[in-house]
Amino acid sequence: MKEQRNILDDLKAKKIAIPDEAFFKSLAARVTQDSVPKKSAKVIPLVAVVLSAAAALVLLFWIFGSKSLNDSINEGTISFASLEDEEILEYVETNIDDFEEDEISALVVFSVKDSIGRVVNERNDQNFSVELDEMFSGLSDEDIMTFLKDEPTEEDEELVSIF
């Protein structure tokens, strides 16, 4: 009976032509020259992460928490009356990347509407926002900040007062 025999005994593995040592040496040289091995990612201890988070919270509280928070909540906006204008400007300038585009444009809409004499009852006036988007489309954040810093105008004063 064929089935009772081991079929593997009737088979013989064919010899494979393996490339010589020079092939593997050359391959290794190509690989090492073409790419750099990645190093192990630096593991940040959990304690350091927790400490950093705690420090950030303390900093945030120091900036926002101690500035008449209750009064600000009642008014619907945060009051920075006790801060110097320069301090606020400096903070905004340093942390411009932390603000969402919408947040900035909403504030700009609010401040500019008075200066150009348009009556807009709500901050989210879509048409007005579109017009402003077009107005400022050619300006970068840096341009605006440079303007605010170097060319203080009445509008800027109003902007600061809104804060």
Binding site: I18, E21, F24, K25, A28, A29, V31, T32, V36, P37
Partner: peptide, 20 residues
């Protein structure tokens, strides 16, 4: 993992031994 020429030499050894 040391990098540099030592790494290249070691990698060549690895390739020659395990490659075939």
């Amino acid at each position: 993992l040391q990098g540099g020429p030592v790494a290249e030499e070691a990698f060549s050894d690895l390739a020659v031994y395990y490659g075939p």
